[in-house]
């Protein structure tokens, strides 16, 4: 096939001859001038609006406000510079479209499709040129050049791959499995870092807590990683309402007289959660509505989370302050590949 013979698919319906509909501006010089004026008017309006926005910026007090119906008190520069500039840009676009629709030719044009391959002659000529180039370069004859070039090109992406290492550091072994909680670490209130006396937590009470050494660890690390893993919530239930816990023995339970400590990090994708309903003992995650029953070993009762909320074993020290009995017995937060 050559370019003179368009690729016509005989099975496809052919374009019917449609009578061209002439527009008012094509036939009537008055309508044509009107359309011209409209387009010029839009462009002119754009000019004025854009100038106005500059003037508003230049001559308005930065803090000036004005009352606008529906919007209330608004900053003059925010609203009016935005309005004038936005409308100005809109007028440029509207003018261009109006111009194209009313005045530019709109006669129907048929453009047939042609085969995408070049003709035989051109393809043969290209093959000939390519072969001549290969022969001239001597790449087949000079093996050492060919092989050394291949080697250089194969290694060229290597530095880019090496740089990917800087996306790390990858968590070292066990970093995701442990927090800074240790046996004997006191529970302190978040924000104010006050130790918590067991007697001061009422039934139905909630304390957002962190380990007492968190401020020092954060200072040392310069990151919030330790906080992100070690935040807990402390709640107190009537002991008879506790159905189950994640560990402990009757003589050494993980709670202290109904005071339970649970991780604050959702096991789904790690949102911090402390939406605690003291009557239902439910803990609700605001991100995806995972709901955990803190009276029943932190069991998932609703939502996409797959694992129980990890419980922190606690007791009290000689002075009656709440302390951890150990680190968490399972990794906190969302699942990860290497999680056992």
């Amino acid at each position: 096939m050559t370019q003179d013979h368009p690729a016509i698919d005989p099975s496809r319906p052919q374009a019917a001859e449609v009578a061209h509909e002439w527009r008012a501006a094509d036939l009537d010089p008055v309508a044509e001038r009107r359309a011209e004026r409209q387009v010029a008017g839009l462009f002119g309006a754009a000019t004025l609006l854009i100038l106005a926005s500059v003037l508003i910026y230049g001559f308005t007090d930065y803090n000036a406000t004005v009352g606008v119906p529906l919007l209330g008190d608004v900053n003059v520069i925010n609203v009016f510079m935005g309005l004038t500039f936005g409308l100005g840009v809109f007028c440029i676009g509207a003018g261009a479209i109006h111009w194209a629709k009313k005045l530019m030719p709109d006669v129907e044009v048929v453009e047939d499709r042609h085969p995408l391959t070049s003709d035989e002659e051109a393809r043969a000529a290209f093959a000939e040129t390519f072969a001549a180039g290969v022969a001239d370069s001597g790449i087949l004859k000079r093996g050492i050049l060919r092989r050394s070039l291949l080697g250089a090109m194969a290694l060229f992406p290597l530095p880019l791959i090496v740089l990917l290492r800087d996306l790390g550091p990858a968590p070292t072994h066990g970093q995701l499995n442990h927090t800074i909680w240790r046996a004997g670490t006191r529970l302190v209130t978040d924000v104010t870092y006050l130790p918590i006396k067991a007697a001061d937590v009422p039934v139905g009470g909630l304390v957002n807590a962190v380990p007492e050494n968190l401020p020092q660890v954060e200072e040392q690390d310069g990151t919030l990683n330790a906080r992100a893993k070690s935040v807990i919530i402390v709640v107190r239930l009537n002991e008879r309402d506790i159905i189950a816990q994640q560990g402990g023995t009757p003589s050494a339970p993980w709670d202290y007289q109904g005071i339970l400590a649970y991780s604050k990090v959702c096991t789904h994708v790690g949102c911090p959660i402390s939406l605690y309903e003291q009557r239902t003992h439910h803990l609700l995650c605001p991100c995806h509505q995972s709901t955990f029953d803190l009276a029943d070993a932190g069991k998932v009762v609703f939502g996409p989370a797959a694992r129980n909320m990890p419980q922190l074993p606690i007791t009290v020290d000689a002075e009656g302050y709440l302390i951890a009995r150990s680190d968490f017995q399972q990794p906190v937060g969302p699942s990860f590949w290497e999680r056992a």
Partner: peptide
Amino acid sequence: VGPNNMPKFSDQTLPPAE
């Protein structure tokens, strides 16, 4: 007092000043 499902924040863990 923690009305309804709101947990209690006692004056010991959340002192009056806070």
